[in-house]
Write a protein that binds this DNA or RNA. Structure first.
Length: 302
DNA sequence: AACACGGGGAC
DNA sequence: GTCCCAGTGTT
């Protein structure tokens, strides 16, 4: 959950997940759709699918017990270089380099890297690896906490930093110049339409998104493709359609503006289901579609 | 190596 | 508005 996501955003989700599925066996046995529904709103939904696949792999390949080494952990779904090293170091004191975003920043400053740290991964990893002491887990957490509290994104606090005597960044006089940001490109704009069909009994017609790509397998309301040019709406059924407003949502790599349309109808579309008002909040809606439903007046403003 | 992949909190 | 978060998987 904490991959690219702050503790503040994760905390409530973590509490609910561990209460609902306290063991790897229970998580492995849970339907994926339930896991996705509980993940809804947290983003990066591949993590939820990986978490579920990881639990199943631990049960099927490892008899329900997590492997102990970074190399073996690295084979599990959703466990990459960082997470495998963090588990091995913190749980078992394996002497491996644990490099998260905090450590990237600390090392970019410590080494005064002139290139974006993304392009210096091998160097950073090897320099951290050389420094790993006997208490590898404590070292890993110390480095991450140093980045989180002292060598922070907008403040370096060099006066209280234990690495200051050997830090090249502070020696340049402007440690905040590091890490050098990668050249960023503008976010494209996309546009589309969302169709909120309200049944006379108050339920909303929803469906599941496709198995791949953005927001895969999450719940949505019917809508158009999201293209760069604004197209007129193509309503999915004949009814009295009303424009309820627009929703603007920023994804990682583009900005989307959806026009929200509502109509009353009782005929379902090909694929999907009617979701009653009571069940609407437990559907696997990403934040985008929560905004759409709020704009349509079908959900309280989140 | 570059890109796809969400959402929110802090400033 | 911008930046960045205890990154991973795919191409």
């Amino acid at each position: 959950m904490l991959q690219q996501t702050t503790i503040a955003a994760v905390r409530d989700y973590f509490e609910k997940f561990t209460r609902l599925w306290p063991t790897v066996h229970e998580l492995a046995a849970a339907p994926l759709d339930d896991v996705l529904a509980r993940w809804a709103g947290l983003g990066y939904y591949a993590r939820a699918r990986n978490l579920h696949a990881c639990a199943q792999a631990v049960v099927s390949r490892h008899d329900g017990v997590f492997p102990s080494t970074a190399a073996d952990l690295r084979e599990l779904p959703g466990i990459g270089d960082y997470t495998s090293a963090a588990i091995a170091a913190i749980c078992h004191d394996e002497p491996v380099a644990v490099v998260d975003g905090n450590v990237d920043r600390v090392m970019a400053r410590f080494l005064a890297l002139e290139n974006p740290v993304r392009d210096e991964k091998p160097l950073v990893r090897s320099r951290v690896q050389e420094a790993v002491p006997r208490r590898a887990g404590d070292f890993a957490q110390a480095m991450m906490d140093l980045g989180a509290t002292i060598c922070a994104p907008r403040r370096a606090n060099c006066l209280v930093c234990p690495l200051e005597p050997q830090c090249l960044g502070t020696r340049t006089g402007n440690p905040l110049a590091y890490p050098v940001p990668p050249a960023k490109k503008a976010k494209p704009e996309r546009f589309g339409h969302a169709y909120v069909i309200v049944h006379p009994d108050g339920s909303i017609f929803v469906r599941q998104r496709g198995p791949k790509g953005l927001l895969a397998k999450m719940t949505e309301v019917p809508g158009s493709d999201w293209t760069a040019n604004g197209q007129p709406p193509a309503f999915p059924l004949s009814a009295r359609w009303t424009e309820a407003g627009t929703v603007v949502h920023t994804f990682t790599h583009f900005r989307l503006t959806l026009t929200v349309w509502t109509a009353s109808a009782s005929t379902p579309l090909d694929e999907g289901w009617w979701s009653a008002p009571d069940s609407l909040t437990s559907e696997a809606f990403p934040s985008l579609f929560r905004k759409v439903l709020a704009t349509a007046g079908a959900l309280p403003i989140p």
